[in-house]
Every structure is written in C-alpha cells, then in structure tokens.
Amino acid sequence: MLILISISSDLKKHNLTMQKKAVFFIVATILLGTSLSAQKYFTREGKVSFYSDAPVEKIEAHNSKATAVLDAGSGNMEFAVLIKAFQFEKALMQEHFNENYMESDKFPKALFKGEVLNLDKVNLEKDGEYPVKVKGSLTIHGVTNEIESPGKFIVKDGNITASSSFTVEVADYDIQIPAVVRDNIAKEVRIDIEAGLQELKKGS
C-alpha cells in the first residue's frame, strides 16, 4: 500500500513537470513562430553613389554591388560596400581616391550598421511610400561615426526599395586632402544609397 501511494505521488509530480514542459513547449513555439515570421530582406546589388561638388570640379563615383540586410522584425539593418568597386569617370581620380584618400588596400570596406527607427510605420506588404529614420554607425576609412539620416521605403507591386541620401564630412573620417586640391574636392560629400530588397528565403 505504501509503495502504491509513493508511486502515485511520483506520478503526480511527473504529471506536473510534464504539464510545465508542455506549457514551456507551447510558449517556445509561439516565440519561435513570431521570430521566424519576422522576415529578413536582403540584396547584393545595392547602389551607392557619392558626389563631391567643389568650386573647381564635380566628382562622382558609383558602386552597384553593395550588400544590405534588413531584419523586418527588429528594424536592424546592415549595409556594406567595397571601396575598390567604386567607379569614376576619370581613371586618375579613381587612383587617387583609392591610394591617397581612402587607402583602400588597408580599408577595403565601408560599413553601416544600425536600425530603422520607425519600421513599425512601414507596411512592407502594402504599396506606398514610407519615410523612415535610420540611425547607426558608419565606418569609412577605418573610422566609425554615429549618424542619423532620413530614408525612404518604397513598396510597389511587392518590390521593396530602400533609399537614403545624406552627407558626410570628409574630415570626420580622417581623410586628408592636400592643400593643392582643396578646391577640387568638397569638404562635404553627398552619399546616395538605393537598394532593392528581396525576401531572404532559407536555402535559396
């Protein structure tokens, strides 16, 4: 008899932990489910251009191989670009840009890591134009600065395009411009970015 009671109480205990486990399991599934449905978007064909508008000359360069990742759940985003993939009209400018100013052998990439502050106001499922604010750290020439910039999401026929335009001060990134070309290169450079984002599917 005593043995029987002890077994039944053991069973009860066991049942309780089973229930706990079941609850935990359900909660975990829900949590996991929501985090899975928060889609990630990405591109490897983002466009980055910059424009230097100085008294003597206008310089621009384009790069169409930037990568961008956006986590639609958290609003976190990352943008990366290879400095050497910027293409200029004049070969000499490209050379100076890489060798003298950006030292792209030493610092081959520029990186932005940050978040879209008001992604909750963006409905990626619905056509429209959504202004956003993006904040994060921008690393160029090995120097990191906090930046904040307005941006825009355009959703059209299920295609998502993210874009932004902002200016950076060359001096903030420890880029030295010799006095001789001071009138050829602007102190503030405008950077335009545009990225058509695709849903990141597992295994694709």
Binding site: K65, T67, I83, K84, K109
Partner: peptide, 8 residues
C-alpha cells in the same frame, strides 16, 4: 575588389 558576402 574584395569580399563582402560574395567575392566581387
């Protein structure tokens, strides 16, 4: 030009 996620 280097590597981001892909080599470019």
């Amino acid at each position: 030009t280097g590597m981001l996620m892909d080599v470019v």
